[in-house]
């Protein structure tokens, strides 16, 4: 319930009205949206029970390692209602050909694969929020100084998921395990997303915001 009340309202894309529509404009709008979402996500992390009990160094380590997984889960969650689009925001949806035109085809394929998986499972909001918090807690950051504290943080989230599933879906005894088994695909998807945005940055056509670049650099 703490995660439910802490979930931030979805952001809207803010395309520059003075720029004519183009694939580059799509990329600029997307990068701006993701940078704002990252900012909101860092604020959100502080509301995950147990997060601010970790040392500042470990909070940074978990965020630097797991931030893209949480952004990916947000997009995948918003895309649950669609059969072939990625819904980055209510007013920023990309289908396959739009993604390809913008140079995001690999990102599209990866995110749609994970989206379909969760669609088949009928992921609900409580599960998504718990997985999102887990993706930070379980981000396998290097140089964690308080390994025991991080472990407790993970255990509490795992316990919440198990308690939720045994209360809400007592007949599906494998539900929690099945959800945890999606985490490797989430990591793989986030890795592909990081590669995609690193490539965009290196190509130099899309200026990226400082925070987004700082976090991207921590992943490379």
């Amino acid at each position: 319930s703490q995660l439910l009340v802490s979930e931030p309202a979805p952001l809207r894309a803010a395309p520059d009205p003075s720029t004519p529509d183009s694939d580059l404009k799509t990329l600029l709008t997307l990068c701006d949206l993701l940078n704002r979402e990252l900012l909101v996500m860092i604020g959100w992390a502080k509301h995950i029970p147990g997060f601010t009990g970790l040392s500042l160094v470990d909070q940074m380590a978990l965020l630097q390692s797991g931030w893209m997984e949480t952004l990916v889960l947000n997009v995948v969650w918003r895309s649950q209602g669609s059969a072939d689009e990625l819904q980055f925001a209510e007013n920023l949806r990309l289908n396959e050909s739009q993604s390809r035109a913008a140079g995001l085809h690999d990102l599209y394929t990866a995110l749609r694969h994970l989206t379909s998986k969760y669609q088949q499972m009928g992921l609900n909001q409580e599960e998504m929020l718990t997985l999102k918090a887990m993706s930070l807690a379980n981000s396998d950051a290097e140089n964690v100084e308080g390994a025991d504290a991080v472990q407790c943080f993970q255990d509490a989230l795992h316990e919440a998921l198990q308690e939720y599933e045994s209360g809400q879906r007592p007949s599906e005894s494998h539900r929690a395990g099945r959800l945890l088994m999606t985490l490797p695909l989430l990591r793989q998807t986030a890795h592909r997303a990081v590669r995609c945005f690193s490539r965009l940055h290196m190509e130099g056509h899309v200026p990226m915001h400082k925070l987004f670049l700082e976090m991207l650099e921590a992943k490379i």
């Binding site: 900012l39 860092i42 604020g43 502080k46 500042l56 160094v57 909070q59 940074m60 965020l63 630097q64 400082k210 925070l211 700082e214 976090m215 650099e217 921590a218």
Partner: peptide, 15 residues
């Protein structure tokens, strides 16, 4: 932490 100034500030200073 030098390299990750913005994140460090955001975590230290609240929202």
């Amino acid at each position: 932490q030098e390299k990750h100034k913005i994140l460090h500030k955001l975590l230290q200073n609240g929202n």
